[in-house]
Design a protein around this nucleic acid. Structure first.
Lengths: 197, 197
DNA sequence: GAAAAAAAATGAACTAGTTTAAGACTTTTA
DNA sequence: TAAAAGTCTTAAACTAGTTCATTTTTTTTC
């Protein structure tokens, strides 16, 4: 069977951890929903109860919260081949605190809560897939939350630039500041300083 | 069958997410190793390749790294009913960067890498257990790493105290400073200030 | 392609948190 | 139970990062 590009991308992602038969692949794809959103559109906003988890096949999103002063704190940028969403709201059906906004026209594959549960029944191997996916994410979150606290803003900037060279030039300096955890003004100073070297 | 207290604790922990038959319970317990360490002893040190993941049945541990200046950064305190270890080293067999040190005499149940793999073969339900355990941890790490960056040290202290009242009086102020991400001196100032209110 | 809106740069005054140093208090060890 | 080691407190000088205000540059929109 011939698959669309977006389906090939997600099947490759899944095949990092589990092997699927042709039939299972087709079943899996039948449980996914295609979603397209325009630049500046929201995939979710604080207060929403999200019913989907998403896989990005094209484009770029920023995931952020607003603090009490209304300042944005960006928790991740997500591009092609990334998973995103608000797992807390997805699992508990409580309203999310997150905004997820497209910074480019974006194409996604979504799995609904109902289909997510169905998936485990129909293809139990997916318990293993998600176990390994979450394990891997957890490792990088632990590393990040531990690392972040011990570095200066300049070091965090250099690290981000080195680790995600493909993302750094797709986002604004202001959003990067929101991710690094500093003001746009200070971000500007750091970039000027680092580039002068 | 009659179980030890420590086994009851871990079986209760597991039963949050999956139901085990009597036979499965016994099989599971047979895959665990009992470990006891004294206060100030290390469960692991940077450079070790860890072959176990741990569940704490009694006592208290601190998990930390040392930065380039030799200053400790504490990533978690773990007490009874908590899981701990270095999953990155456990999975990849690379040397850990973590120190895990007992702050009280501590009793643990460990699962070795070999038995962890065996567990999934023998009782596939455990894929689901770990999927849900990691999912839950991931939710709280994401929340923490997002939240931490937007609060002042004083706010982070108050939050910790409110969220973990049972841990706060089992650890030193210095270690708490290492967790909050500030110097012990500044921690002292904050505590004086907060208590004066 | 002009006007409007948003992002980036720059600088001066400010603040949260660090550093260093020294003394008081507590806990551990022999 | 005395000595040693570690923890906590206080204070003064310092620095990384913020805030506010203004100008320049880039991007978006119609």
């Amino acid at each position: 069977m011939l698959y669309k590009e977006s389906h090939i991308l997600i099947l490759n992602n899944v095949s990092r951890f589990i092997d699927l038969t042709e039939l299972e692949k087709q079943k899996y794809i039948s449980l996914l929903t295609e979603i397209n959103i325009k630049r500046k559109a929201f995939l979710m906003q604080a207060g929403d109860i999200t019913s989907y988890e998403y896989f990005i096949t094209k484009g770029c999103l920023k995931v952020y919260t607003l603090d009490d002063d209304g300042a944005p704190h960006i928790s991740m940028f997500a591009v092609e081949d990334y998973w995103t969403g608000d797992m807390a709201s997805f699992m508990t059906k409580e309203p999310t605190r997150y905004f997820i906004k497209a910074t480019e026209d974006t194409e996604l594959l979504g799995i609904s809560r109902a289909n997510y549960e169905l998936l485990f029944q129909e293809i139990p191997k997916f318990e293993r897939f998600y176990r390994m996916l979450y394990q891997k994410s957890l490792i990088s979150y632990i590393r990040r939350s531990n690392h972040g606290i011990s570095l200066t803003a300049e070091e965090r900037y250099i690290e981000f630039k080195t680790k995600y060279p493909n993302i750094v030039n797709r986002i604004t300096q202001k959003d990067l500041a929101g991710y690094i955890g500093i003001t746009p003004e200070f971000m500007s100073k750091i970039i000027t300083k680092v580039n002068r070297r």
